[in-house]
């Protein structure tokens, strides 16, 4: 059986979730591997959410937010950016390849970009394979 990864996508309400919505209503096709969790802003995705997702069995995590400068809460996605380098580094400390995380900025009118990001991420995680080693249980 071919390996189908599970990818959690945190989409901000204002742009990226709307883009996902539009992708759906435009009947664009994309891999069914993602599970979207709607958040108000990409800036509220605490690093622990990412770690928790991977710990609990996700194979990859996507964060999607508005274009820089277009965040509904002004600088939410800048905070996401500020944390990003740190999370990428830390993922390896916690035993995950840093490629298991991706970040995409898109506006609500870019469903094609959403589809592209999801397709690419699915490919990427497929190559990595399932999370190896011990997964936190507690």
């Amino acid at each position: 059986m071919s390996y189908e990864p599970k990818i959690i996508a945190f989409c901000c309400n204002w742009c990226s979730y709307a883009a996902a919505d539009l992708a759906g209503s435009s009947r664009l096709q994309y891999p069914p591997n993602i599970r979207i969790i709607r958040v108000m802003c990409s800036g509220m995705v605490h690093p622990e959410f990412i770690l928790e997702a991977l710990n609990k069995g996700a194979d990859g995590v996507m964060i999607m937010g508005c274009h820089l400068g277009e965040c509904h809460y002004l600088d939410g996605n800048h905070i996401t950016m500020a944390r990003l380098d740190m999370i990428v580094e830390l993922l390896e400390d916690f035993g995950f390849e840093s490629e298991r995380l991706s970040v995409t900025w898109l506006s609500s009118t870019e469903p094609d970009k959403f589809v592209k990001a999801v397709t690419e991420m699915t490919e990427r995680v497929k190559k990595l394979g399932p999370v190896q080693g011990e997964v936190q249980t507690a």
Partner: peptide, 29 residues
């Protein structure tokens, strides 16, 4: 700047159970 923290894994020096400390996974790239 988080990258200025030297040997940051040692922050977990008292709490390595519960999967908090694991063998380091090197990035493929």
């Amino acid at each position: 700047d988080c990258m200025s923290v030297v040997d940051r894994r040692s922050i977990q020096r008292f709490c390595g159970a519960h999967g908090n400390l694991r063998p380091k996974k090197k990035s493929a790239v």
